[in-house]
Design a protein around this nucleic acid. Structure first.
Lengths: 371, 371
DNA sequence: CTGTTAGCGCCTTCAC
DNA sequence: GTGAAGGCGCTAACAG
């Protein structure tokens, strides 16, 4: 066994050692109230010699604040959330808050559990990237219980909390448009949606998609559809893949696209992991980008520049999303209460080498030169 | 403002509502002791109608266990730690533990702070990836205070705690050997070390490197040096880059290699982010892999297969490292105390397209065919 | 500036 | 099986 079970030094111990009262010791140790320089010195010395470590759980109990922020992400392995996480820690660690982390893997059930964990741990606030089919009921309940929540990436209709994300519809609208302007008429999207959302993403009307904007995917799909419509291009549900958000799923979807009698000449992938899957799928079927298909990914990953071909992407200010989310939350905790806000940050189309003219009957054609 | 400041329902409230004593309510709610089915039902119903949420901080205070694990990683943005984290959550969430996360960015000071945070929060155990120049003093103190610690990735001499990592020396030894067998004589490494460790990594003897195996980098460098020695190849300190662990640093180091009168014909990068930097640096100087230089990366990233060229890597069982670390820790918490162990997992050289014959005077030569 | 006292919400004896 | 009382370590209020 490992020692005789953790015995901690308390303020009382320090006080005794320093020859002062618990209150004075606590004041010096907790850095509040006023303590004479002399007492403070004695307490600090006693604390050091005894190896005192403040007990945050006791402190939290009395102050009602844990100085902890709950972070619930949909997928830890996604580049996007890692950068966001870093943005969050930048702010929180600077302001003396620690993080309790939970991963939902896009599972609604785990999201609920995570929410309960955070409530139970009495975190001071929560930063949450809701799953696509979020349980607004539970989120709303937590928010109403008085724990500030900031949603990232996704916004939820009917839930009155802050949110930070990007202009999803505009981003895909612009990207789709870029492809259309090059002459592409057969543009497919890999949404990353799962079995639950697939029917909606594939068959709902644009109006419905926009209304159900609980989902990032819905909104992005809407932007794509709208660009198609604006250009008078036909929409085909078989060009919308929604078979999962993992790399392998995107790979399979890509292969499936090329099994179609008339494969798409361009593909937009809704996140960086999916882009990777498309690249693999392309290899599987022996297609080359941009010669055979143009490809636009979402999220500028560190590898985007060195893949073959260098990937054209819709860049999101990921770090900034985290920074803003944390700032919003901590400001609210600091009492600077105000109406709830929804920050929509801008994206940038970063053009590299994966977009070109459409290939028609084996010949590349189009109104202008490639990118 | 957001409501009148979080008022929580307590066991007392539930007890009153259910018409039982606090003790009985607490027993039903906390699921311990024995409660009649009837009381339990009434308590549960009262809890549900009141929206009771157990207060973990109060519970922790009395039980002495927070059911929380502190995870301290060196770099959240590194692929390696993300996978490890996922491995950890697999196990911990299943066994009812939550995670408190801290990032050190390879800063010793932040590592100390993180350790203090974890102590203060009274986490039940800690999983830590120590910085290269770890403060064994502080880590040892925490371990001796009775909080179990499991080290990941890196092992620390003189600190008596569990650790999980890979056979670092063997991995680089084998990789270097592979290159040597193809005829490479000028092999460089990008260690990712920083200014502090650079002099040691570049100039220490192999024996010293092995002894100071606090560091992964030291051990990896030792493996590289030993392979060189075994083959009778000269060691050159200007072939060892230790100018930082960021992508940009590796890029700069690569460019610097090619400014040498006789650039290396092969490069080994010590982690996946560094590999990416090398790839960029290669582009900067207009060198192609594997024609101009062979490249071996560390850690099989999701993008390794689709970069140009597909990257040959030393694959680590990252997920498994997390799983084993968490399992080790929780088993120890469960009282299954035993001697401290050091798990060294095996790596695999995954050969793809970035390794070939060395280029000599503009002509590729070597004993065999390329990979 | 300092000390005393009460109590945060829960679990744990200890009686009954 | 149930209830009453005590206390985990700390801070908040109030006197001095």
């Amino acid at each position: 066994m490992s020692g005789e079970g953790r015995v901690h030094v308390t303020v009382g111990d320090v006080a005794r050692e320093a020859g002062v009262s618990v209150a004075t010791a606590a004041r010096a140790l907790g850095d509040y109230g006023s303590v004479s320089a002399k007492s403070r010195a004695r307490v600090e010395q006693a604390a050091a010699s005894l190896g005192y470590s403040p007990n945050m759980v006791a402190r939290s109990m009395i102050t009602g604040s844990t100085k902890a922020i709950g972070v619930i992400v949909a997928d830890i392995e996604n580049q996007f959330f890692q950068r966001v996480l870093r943005g969050i820690t930048h702010i929180t660690s600077e302001r003396g808050y620690d993080l309790v982390l939970a991963n939902t893997d896009e599972s609604l059930d785990r999201e609920r559990r995570a929410l309960r964990v955070m409530t139970s741990r009495r975190v001071d606030g929560i930063i949450l990237s809701p799953t696509e089919v979020a349980d607004t009921q539970e989120i709303r309940a937590v928010a109403e219980s008085g724990v500030p929540i900031v949603l990232i990436d996704r916004r939820l209709r009917g839930v009155n909390v802050d949110s930070v994300g990007i202009r999803n519809r505009g981003a895909t609208y612009d990207a789709t448009n870029r492809l259309i302007s090059l002459g592409h008429k057969h543009i497919a999207v890999i949404t990353g949606g799962t079995a639950e959302s697939a029917p909606v993403l594939k068959n709902a009307t644009v109006a419905t998609l926009r209304r159900l904007s609980a989902t990032t995917l819905g909104t992005r799909t809407a932007g794509y559809r709208e660009a198609l419509e604006a250009a008078g291009l036909a929409y085909r549900s078989d060009f919308v893949a929604a078979n999962g958000f993992r790399q392998e799923d995107a790979r399979a979807a890509t292969v499936a696209f090329f099994a179609l009698p008339d494969p798409p000449t361009a593909i937009i992938a809704f996140d960086s992991l999916l882009s990777l899957g498309v690249l693999q799928g392309l290899r599987d079927v022996g297609a080359r980008s941009p010669d055979d298909v143009s490809l636009i990914g979402f999220d500028d990953a560190p590898w985007a520049e060195v893949v073959d071909p260098p990937l054209t992407v819709i860049g999101q200010p990921t770090l900034e999303i985290g920074v803003q989310a944390a700032t919003l939350l901590l400001d609210r905790l600091a009492g600077r209460g105000r109406a709830h806000v929804h920050h929509r940050l801008e994206t940038t189309l970063i053009e590299r080498g994966s977009v070109g003219l459409p290939r028609l009957n084996g010949v590349r054609t189009g109104p202008g030169a490639g990118l």
